[in-house]
């Protein structure tokens, strides 16, 4: 056991009936690291996190959290973890204040109430509001407060900024960075590429229940693609544009509207467009799902060819 590791997962397998949800997940997260965990829907992100918390039991493989086995020492492991579930379900007939006091009680009141109020103030969360009256974003804030309030050594965050407005997302990033500065290990899943780029130190990509790759945020950025919608003032010949390196045609409307897919930098495209009568340009960034689909398309083709 490496003492510098906060999380070690080895050859983790999990079946749901006949569905093989995790097919040998291997990963290692160092102490104090901010680790992004990405993957398309149904890839096994939440299943891996739930195994770490001993909410579900894997059929094979091992997990060590700060050197402890969650199946043997679930309470000890969970006392070191702050968790935000991806699908946050909360009781409704209770005030935010009472809910947080209840969570404090579950941690045997080892949480500073002053720190809790500081967190709620920072996230602008009203303590006297009944949970049933909270918006999705405010429920997410409550989830974040309960995850951050124990000042745990490890934070497991499933989509931490889901439902939050951009300003509040920035506040959360700052809070996570300051937690990291205090030595907290942060393991989070996300669908927002900019979020991963902004805060993660390392990124693992899980796909079909197995870690497909472990990369740096800069490598992730290079994987990203953009769609560019261009409206011209008159009909044009698009060939000089589509012949550019890293650019391909997605759709062509009436000859005045085109959509291009751009991989990497946009410099060449913009310089070439200077010669055209451009009406408007709209840039769309690919979602994580689209990137995964595109990125693994060739691999799947190869796999299907192998089968044939």
């Amino acid at each position: 056991m490496n003492e510098r590791s906060a999380i070690i997962i080895k050859d983790l397998h999990k079946f749901y009936g006949k569905v093989h949800a995790l097919r040998g997940v291997n990963l290692e997260v160092k102490r104090g690291e901010m680790y992004g965990f990405l993957g398309p829907n149904g890839a096994g992100k939440t299943t891996t996190i739930r195994c770490m918390l001993d909410l579900i039991r894997p059929q094979a493989g091992s997990i060590r959290i700060l050197g402890m086995d969650p199946q043997k020492l679930p309470v000890e492991v969970r006392s070191q973890i702050g968790y935000l579930p991806g699908e946050l379900n909360l009781e409704t007939n209770i005030k935010v204040l009472d809910m947080l006091r209840y969570f404090m009680g579950l941690r045997r009141n080892k949480v500073s109430w002053d720190y809790v109020t500081a967190l709620t103030q920072r996230l602008e969360l009203d303590l006297n509001m009944p949970v049933k009256n909270l918006s999705k974003g405010n429920k997410q804030k409550l989830g974040l407060v309960q995850a951050l309030m124990p000042r745990a050594k490890i934070l497991l965050l499933d989509e931490p900024t889901a439902g939050l407005d951009p300003l509040m997302q920035q506040v959360v990033y700052k809070m996570l960075k300051s937690a990291k500065a205090e030595g907290t290990t942060i393991f989070f899943s996300s669908h927002i590429i900019s979020e991963v780029e902004a805060i993660a130190g390392r990124v693992a990509i899980i796909r079909k229940g197995i870690i497909a790759e472990e990369i740096s945020p800069s490598q992730l950025a290079s994987m990203t693609m953009r769609k560019v919608k261009i409206r011209f003032r008159k009909k044009i010949d698009t060939r000089p544009l589509t012949n550019l390196e890293g650019i391909s045609l997605v759709s062509k409307g009436n000859g005045m509207d085109i959509t291009l897919k751009v991989e990497g930098e946009m410099d060449k495209l913009i310089k070439t467009l200077a010669n055209y009568p451009v009406g408007s340009i709209e840039t769309l960034r690919h979602s994580l799902e689209e990137i995964f689909l595109d990125y693994y398309k060739d691999e799947e083709k190869e796999a299907s060819l192998d089968v044939c």
Binding site: R50, L53, L55, V75, E76, R78, S79, I81, Y83, P85, E87, L88, N89, L90, E91, F103, L106, R107, R108, G143, Q146
Partner: peptide
């Protein structure tokens, strides 16, 4: 879905 969050605490 309420039990997930409760059992993620040290209980």
């Amino acid at each position: 879905g309420l039990l997930d969050l409760v059992l993620a605490h040290p209980i």
